[in-house]
Nucleic acid binder design. Structure first.
Lengths: 232, 232
DNA sequence: CAGACTCAGATTGCATACAGAAGCCTATAT
DNA sequence: ATATAGGCTTCTGTATGCAATCTGAGTCTG
């Protein structure tokens, strides 16, 4: 067998290539931004970051470049990187974009979900209900993300999934400090959506997801106007 | 006046900063990929590109990094950059994502468009009709892009606009070699959409755009299945 | 003759070095 | 006292150098 065949069943990642440093730096910097260590508007000095992270400027530069593509920092020519300062308008825009993307994902999920997928959806739903009963705020947020993320996967559209992932991360960054989860209503809506996905009713699943994300958006926007400049 | 004020009316770009080389390299490489000089799957050697473009490896590296973020090349660790090989599935996914994003843009446009905006929309529409009458294929494509692009602008959502821009560029790359414009029907649909935007009927504008993009998607997908592996 | 091993060339990833631009502080003139 | 001009420091942008790694050809062995 000389010819390099791909084995049908085995989805082997190519044996864990040596992860580039830029990736590690990228991850750490996002952690620092999300965690508030690096504050919005702050000037990120390459050399300083390099020393703190124990690498040279090169991987830091490459990480900053990607952070710019993903909307985390702004790169002003000849001035360097500044942590992006999210605005209220931008938060609303991110929410609305995420809403339409997830609505579309629900449509696709209803088309492609298998029996096993449905079972998994109900598991995730149950986990969310459990966290809700236990009043476990962190658990609720995680369960919600897991459920929405799995629905996204079910749409069998990696392009869509990647966009949602990017948008969602930025939304969560902005709302993490102020947002509280929505509560029981959201999970009732989830149940309805799963119901429609289960029977392959794509249009109805889409409509319900549209309603759900819209309600969530409004819910967050109200909190937003209540705390207008929480992170100046 | 010591304090640095931003002037309300003037949307001045900050006086043309020295454009970094990486930007120029990035633009040139996209040209080369779109133009077919660099073919899908081809291994891009940093040093080679650097020599050809008359710069060092550094700007080339940075450009390649951004090209990866935007889906133009794949960067395999320790192996370098390879021009992305688009698949039929991916093309369909890009089309469907672009459709939902533009549908959302139409909704926003209907909410925010001013009288002047409407006038501009009809101008762009007229330009498209003119190109159609003149049987100017290139002109039709450009007019179509201009009209859709302006509708996107009208949604007053830069996040959405940026996503559409990225997705649209990749779609156009894939379809440029095989696609023919749709013809008269598309422009009739445009007219209806503009009508609804003009009167601020967001829901109807959204529905019409949904229909329009869906038809366009189907139209392209048919051409796609007719030329399955045009660019292997 | 097939297959595994070795070694050399090539290429990436990271580090360092250098030049130019931007911002800041100070000194000076009005 | 305020505004301005000039020099200085800092940081980015670009170039180059070096080590590790991957690929492929050639060779050796069963």
């Amino acid at each position: 067998m000389r010819e390099p065949r791909t084995f049908p069943g085995t989805a082997t990642t190519p044996v864990a290539r040596p992860a580039p440093l830029r990736q590690a730096v990228y991850d750490v910097l996002i952690e620092l931004i999300v965690g508030g260590v690096l504050q919005p508007g702050q000037h990120l000095i390459e050399a300083e970051l390099a020393v703190n992270l124990g690498v040279s400027r090169q991987p830091v530069r490459e990480a900053l470049l990607r952070l710019q593509s993903d909307g985390w920092v702004e790169l002003r020519p000849a001035q360097g990187a500044f942590v992006h300062s999210p605005t209220v308008e931008e938060a609303a825009q991110l929410l609305s974009v995420r809403a339409v993307l997830e609505t579309h994902a629900a449509h696709g999920a209803a088309q492609y979900a298998t029996g096993a997928d449905i079972a998994r959806l109900w598991e995730l739903q149950a986990a969310g209900i459990a966290a809700l009963s236990a009043d476990d705020a962190r658990g609720i947020v995680e369960a919600n993300a897991a459920l929405h993320g799995f629905i996204t996967e079910l749409a069998r559209n990696p392009i869509l999934a990647e966009l949602i992932r990017q948008v969602d991360r930025r939304v969560r960054w902005y709302y993490m400090p102020i947002a509280r989860p929505r509560g029981k209503d959201a999970w009732n809506e989830h149940a309805e959506i799963i119901d429609r996905i289960a029977v392959g009713d794509a249009d109805r699943a889409e409509a319900l997801m549209h309603q759900h994300t819209r309600t969530t958006t409004d819910f967050y926007c109200r909190q937003l106007s209540a705390v207008p400049r929480a992170r100046a």
